[in-house]
């Protein structure tokens, strides 16, 4: 997307416990900042794992302070889902601004992103690993 002043991007931890991590995304998640998104979230996930072990089941991303998002930002989010889903962490997208809702709707990936993840050691996860059959968006 085109420039959104200020072109800054930051992540803040809103709340955390062993099973749930709530992060707030501030600013712009676009072509210029999306490269920072994945390592920034990964760092927080690693920190959580160091403290609580692999107990995390829910990652909430709060988008209330998001000023803009584009296809590169969405690509970064899909990259995050690739990491969290096999680890049994379900993504939750909270307080999306209208433009983000529209982007998710047009691209048809909302259901895929927030698909419920089975804990990696459960029998359901073993069956679901590989190709996901429930990624269909509701048109």
């Amino acid at each position: 997307m085109t420039p959104c002043p200020p072109p800054e991007f930051s992540l803040a931890v809103q709340a955390t416990d062993a099973r749930t991590l709530r992060l707030a995304v501030h600013g712009c998640l676009d072509y210029d900042t999306s490269d920072e998104f994945t390592p920034a979230v990964a760092e927080l996930l690693d920190a959580h794992a160091d403290r609580h072990g692999p107990a995390l089941r829910h990652l909430h991303l709060d988008w209330a302070e998001l000023t803009a998002v584009d296809s590169s930002g969405l690509s970064a989010l899909l990259g995050l889902r690739r990491r969290t889903h096999p680890a049994g962490i379900t993504l939750h997208l909270d307080h999306q601004p209208a433009h983000f809702t529209r982007l998710l709707e047009v691209t048809g990936v909302a259901a895929h992103l927030t698909q419920h993840a089975q804990p990696p050691d459960s029998p359901a996860a073993a069956r679901a690993s590989g190709r996901s059959a429930t990624a269909a968006p509701s048109p």
Binding site: S75, L78, E105, V106, T107, G108, V109, H112, R131, S132, A133, A135, A136, P137, P139
Partner: peptide, 15 residues
């Protein structure tokens, strides 16, 4: 018409 983007998800569906 609507559908899923291509190149990132294992399966895609379109109308």
């Amino acid at each position: 018409t609507s559908g899923t983007l291509v190149g990132a998800l294992p399966d895609v569906h379109m109308r």
